[in-house]
Design a protein around this nucleic acid. Structure first.
Lengths: 215, 215
DNA sequence: GGGGTTAACATTGTCGACAATCTACCTATT
DNA sequence: AATAGGTAGATTGTCGACAATGTTAACCCC
């Protein structure tokens, strides 16, 4: 049991705003290319422009927003090149995460990941549910590595991933192969097989790229 | 030759401020644990608190500053765990970069990297110069991968690296082994050897960790 | 009709002031 | 003497107003 007495970290307003904006972007409420009008957003969020601008700067640093001077901030438009680059970054992070997990308690971690894969299999008929579990799998993978830096970076790219998925929701289908890929990866991690996990992860990312860039 | 006609991107004030702060942190002008008083900093930079706070939020997102509500922003204090985590992140990024370089024109890239190694060898007597070239090597490595996302993330960790080096400047020595490590890595990349480059990179990072955490 | 100029509008960028909060010190009481 | 309470100072958090810039559209001239 963890102690109830711990330093309470109240998060700052800009960080809350950044979270809200990230959610809005990932769920398609703020569409790619859209401008974030400060006055309107501030009104909707019930804050003034100051803290809102501070929060937006965070997302700009993450690369989720692009700034054009004296014009405003816009949600990034993901080109096919961006999709490739995003998966390159995700691959880098998740490979490192898997390596670190395997160097630690990979059996427990593998079990957790397999649980998610089981949920995926159970939800096979529901593309949206499988999509969410897919993301949950990768989020858990990185979280299990217990690295603040990997987690922070990953958050950004998960947002971009959600954004892409949302953008082509209509054409988003579930292949049984995808569930199998996750299961294989989870098993490789449970087994502590560095090389196999690496290869599976890279192949998985390549699949995702082709799935998102060709249609 | 590149075209002179290209979309001119004027960078915003918060981004300029963020750059200045990053430099100040990496060069030890803002020491680990130090508080960034807004009024004073704003005066020194010749801007008002608004844009300054926006710039500081960027660094907070990067993890270079930590925010304590109603208390202010502080430069992070790198614990040994932080050093390890930072190198984990750098390793992830640079491995991905080297992989991508090797999939492209690795011979040209290797040549560029070897040129830096030659400069290192020439500057062997001067620890500060070798340190700068060490960092320049890794910056070039990532830049050659041509990935906006890897480059953006890397910038953060290079800042943290500089911060650490600066913090223990007195005990910072140049071993000939370090130059050799870089040369071997550059040669592996020039040769297009995935596995060797990977192994060398990981060993190199491990060395750096032990160099920074034990004394 | 095309190109250029001008003016009005909307939006962002910046600033100064006020409110809220925390820290540190001092005082009084047990 | 130690602790609780209160107060003053300083710093951050928030806001509204003003200035600067870019865009759009109408208008005029060639």
């Amino acid at each position: 049991m963890t102690s109830f007495i711990e330093p309470l970290a109240q998060e700052s307003t800009p960080s809350i705003i950044a979270d809200k904006l990230r959610k809005a972007i990932s769920h398609g409420e703020l569409k790619p290319g859209a401008q974030l009008g400060e006055a309107e957003l501030a009104r909707k969020l019930g804050v003034s422009r100051g803290p809102l601008r501070e929060g937006m700067q965070r997302l700009t640093q993450e690369g989720l927003l692009v700034s054009i001077r004296n014009r405003g901030l816009f949600v990034i438009d993901m080109t096919p090149d961006d999709v490739r680059d995003m998966y390159l970054a995700r691959e880098a992070i998740e490979r490192a995460a898997s390596r670190r997990i395997i160097d630690g308690d990979h059996e427990a971690a593998g079990k957790e990941l397999l649980a998610i894969v089981d949920e995926m299999a159970a939800a096979e008929g529901d593309p949206a549910a499988v999509g969410e579990l897919d993301i949950a799998f990768h989020e858990r993978l990185v979280k299990l590595a217990n690295s603040p830096r990997l987690s922070r970076m990953h958050q950004t790219y998960i947002t971009e991933t959600r954004m892409c998925i949302h953008a082509l929701e209509e054409t988003y289908t579930v292949s049984e192969a995808r569930i199998g890929e996750h299961r294989a990866l989870a098993e490789a991690i449970a087994a502590g097989d560095h090389l196999l996990a690496d290869d599976l992860l890279m192949a998985h990312m390549d699949d995702a790229i082709t799935r998102l860039t060709t249609r």
